[in-house]
Design a binder for these strands. Sequence first.
RNA 1: GCCGUUGUAGCUCAGUGGCAGAGCACUUCCUUGGUAAGGACGAGGUCGAGGGUUCAAUUCCCUCCAACGGCUCCA
Length: 938
Amino acid sequence: MEYNFRETEQKWQRYWAKNNIFRAENNSKKPKYYVLDMFPYPSGAGLHVGHPLGYIASDIFSRYKRLQGFNVLHPMGFDSFGLPAEQYAIQTGQHPEITTRSNISRYKEQLDKIGLSFDWGREIRTSSPEYYKWTQWIFIQLFNSWYNPETQKAEPISTLIPKLDNFNSLNEKEQSDILLQYRLAYLSDTMVNWCPQLGTVLANEEVKDGVSERGGYPVERKLMKQWSLRITAYAERLLNDLDKIDWSESIKEAQRNWIGKSEGTSLFFSIENFDNKIEVFTTRPDTIFGVSYLTLAPEHELVEKLTSEEQYKSVNEYVTWAKNRSERERMAEVKKVTGVFTGSYAIHPFTGKQIPIWVGDYVLAGYGTGAVMAVPAHDSRDYAFAKHFHLPVIEVVKGGNISKESYDAKEGEIINSDFLNGLDVKDAIKKAIAVIEEKNFGKGKINYRMRDAIFGRQRYWGEPIPVYYKNGVPYVLNENELPLILPEVDKYLPTENGDPPLGRATGWCYSDNDQNKYEYELSTMPGWAGSSWYYLRYMDANNTNNFVGKDAVNYWNNVDLYIGGAEHATGHLLYVRFWTKFLFDLGLIPQVEPAKKLINQGMIQGVSSFVYRSGKSNTFISYNLIKDQFNKLTIEELEREAQKPQAKPEIVEAWKNSSFHTYGKVTALHVDINFVNNNVLNIEAFKKWREEFNNAEFVLENGKYICGSEVEKMSKSKWNVVSPDDIIAQYGADCLRLYEMFLGPLELSKPWNTNGITGVSNFMRKLWRLYHHDNCFTISDEKASRNELKVLHRTIKKISYDIEHFSFNTSVSNFMICVNELSDLKCNKREILEPLIIIISPYAPHIAEELWNKLGHPESITFAQFPEYNEEYLTETSFSYPISLNGKTKYNYEFELSLSKDEIEKQVMQLEQTIKLLDGKQPKKIIVVPNKIINIVI
RNA sequence: GCCGUUGUAGCUCAGUGGCAGAGCACUUCCUUGGUAAGGACGAGGUCGAGGGUUCAAUUCCCUCCAACGGCUCCA
């Protein structure tokens, strides 16, 4: 009987679900192991073959750990608040909850078809009130806490009050304002990334290249009253604890960069004719004598005050221009030097000399103090600025050529610097700080690049922030008033006067015991709120009294293995660490880190297909006829080159012969990959695709229309999505699982191509045949041969190593080798095939269950035991040595491994081949490496 | 510009201070009662380039090149 994957896979999936095979127990004598996937946002497009890559890997690991006798927690849920559902709601009027729910059920169906061993009894959805009740609850804890720098941990706000002067004499509003400066969740006027098209603010990591990550809309800077979380309080711990966790170096490095710790000095410059001082932050106090001007950010609070009358107009113009520039423009024009003189002068603290004060937008308002002491000789940005505006360049560190470029390196001898002369940079920094502190000009300071996380979103589909306002003072709800349920609204758009959508909810306000009504906060939490603690909820998903039970969290502790995409490096993965540390500080959980080990799976990219339309016509030209238009030199560049007076003849020739002259310039259009097979377009299907193509004409090559192709992100808009459902329908879930792993190392990105999938499919057939003879299940109880045992145990050893090292692609290849060899040996012995199917079962669980069952086991293979390899079967008694002359292999000869080096050397020299090889010459040296090689040097 | 990752067979990837490998794809042949196949045989390589260390380098060290990803006026 041939293996029927359709029937078999369904049968076992039903069996697993019905018998709760993958349920994790909170009370167990077994050791625990927690394997977590980054939960998906359930989009309307469903899963594509890229999504399951990590899920399959984590599933293999979970199943492996179960076979090793662990109590495995392997849950799944949905990150179900977020922008796409809301955008869809705006377009269609459909409540996001409805679309979200149907998307989730589709996702679950797709996940189950892959045979993933989730404990669905612990499923969570961040948008369900049972879940977000606790997200709101944690927000309240953040609001009620401050970070005590002395104890270096979060504490209840009540421990702060005694430390504040005159606190009790202040009125309610004043008290609130003061406390907001300490609370870990706080309200303040902040510069935010405002995205007009999305109608909301965005966090720094949600902005890429000056546009929103979702949708790609322009983002501008704006001052707004906003809720933020004081993640900066944890900067040092977030940085230090990276050393405690086994995460990829690239993620750790990204987080280190994001936190951006730099040690330096804060330094005050007094200003001529003003009482104010300008505080600058510098990491190079050793270059203090090289300061030739100061630069303030356009947003700096002193700019207006310091501007002299004659400079007023130009400064005002400049500042207005700089402030209104979008982030995108600013980033695009980094190389362009702009700035203006304020007309005022600062006083150099050591020399007493006048130093002009400039405004320049290369100084960022948000970093340090928003002001820098410019040392053009030793900072390339200051250098560019100084050269542009003809400001003096004073060399104070030897080693560079100041007339050409700045010398930024932190090494060399200090010159022109009074008491620092002769020191090297490192010592000069120390000495400079000491003197600056001694003279009270400033002090040593640590600065972090990371900003506090803006926590409010002016959107509908998110957790309501559990806050109401009384006389302009924010109050949080009581615990027993949670959850604060997201209200219904008539439209998912801002109100007429610009309030967030929650402003549309009727009767949505807080009533106190005296029936007084107060307005609720109208913004909601950002997408990352729910995901910042979800790993804890899985431990005790149905607890109604607590966000997680004490016993549960003490048993499961934290995640042992976390698998997910690297794109969350500075977003989710930083926030979840922050919340974990916070909850730890309050004594609510026992660990300071959410996940011991993190693996980033690579992306599976799509292979897009293109057709090429000639000019504005409806004629499509086959790829090879026009592919010259996509060479490194574009057709425009070629034209330009060809028309230059002294153009090279070959360029002119290329231009004359280019397809441009025959077909004009072509436009590439994505075409649905379902119409394309081996780059050949199915013309009929293409014509029917869209009305505009009905009458399309085609210029063919060899009677075919050949499409171009390119590797891109898999996405609906690029028409290159491959659904796992299709693969499963054609080859089965086991084959999909094996193939996804076989594609390459888990952590690498790779394009999806199905070239090798038939190989994997053949492998499965071959595996099945090992257990069958003449279509009948046939297994022998005969003793296995030494050779068979060697094959098995070598495979067990290799597979164990591979799984432990997350090298799933090599396992698949090793299964193939093993099955090939056992086929060659015509092995059908239980002693071999029973352990074999156990080690394959994490990868291909359905076929494994079926064969396991046929082998006579009534229980699921999940409860089997992973076999241990026996080194004894792998050892050899002799070795065929390659014998080489001066490192070049000449011939082979077999020696017993028990022979000593001397013995081998003696025997080698007596061999006929050796004598012939040496041709009478005396060897200088003979190198014998046991079990490796023999090298004769002459 | 900085950081990270990767360069090995046509493709996807293992591996190693000591004979350069696997799977897929490919050639040829065999089997047509395992047939949307099965079996046998085979071809394929400057281990990204150059230098150094070594008896021996694809492997270790240095320099460079290329591809991919991330960060980026961060003082």
